[in-house]
Amino acid sequence: MAFSQEEFMLSKIELEENPSPRVPICLVLDTSYSMYGEPIKELNNGVKLFMDSIRRDDIASASAEISMVTFGGTVKQVFDFGSIHRQTIPHLGVEGVTPMGEAVNLALDLLERRKMMYSQSGVDYYQPWIVIMTDGAPTDDIARAASRTSDLVNKKKLTIFPIGIGPSADMNTLKQFSPKRQPLRLKGLKFVEFFEWLSKSISMVSKSTPGEEVKLDVASIPDWGSL
């Protein structure tokens, strides 16, 4: 039945504009001195590709909120959760020892704070992700951090990806953060391939609707990682 478009069309001001549901992702990255040379160069390339890739995806860029914590000598919060369009792609350098436990604790604190902010402002969010990448073993106590991540994973409140870099990565330590998913070892220095996979996975999550099970692209994991 014909009707006048003008007379019967709703205008934007009569509608609500709710914020996009968020996918909080925290990258916890080893920048200790052992990452010197090609590893830190490839890690920087991978991080840049990851952020560029999310920025190019309209839906993922409206949903993904990235925070970055590095552990090299000291623990640094490179940036807190926020819009990826307002974040500057960092250039990571190397320094000192490997305080992994403190870094993961900081990541979890940032995440808790962000989740509280979402709840207070009526912003829906997807299951948060933490990615831990290291090429060695921690130089501090990881017990509390591992207990916190394991508790969240077991309660289905967190997805965690522990990734070992190179032959010296302590996979047994990484396993303590992840009670369900085995840590993966990066093949060579395939940071770019890993971050490409990560951005595609985030994109899939950001487009999922209620009841939709997000199946990670397990088949392409061998392109960059192995058990």
Binding site: L15, E16, N18, G122, D124
Partner: peptide
């Protein structure tokens, strides 16, 4: 997403308009 304000937990004014349209015009239209 357009008709319910999640933060303030209230409905959009557009709903009143649609109800009024229905009051004054044929159902099918």
């Amino acid at each position: 997403e357009s008709l319910f304000n999640k933060r303030e937990k209230r409905l959009a004014p557009a709903i009143k308009k649609m109800l009024e349209w229905l009051r004054e015009h044929p159902n099918q239209k």
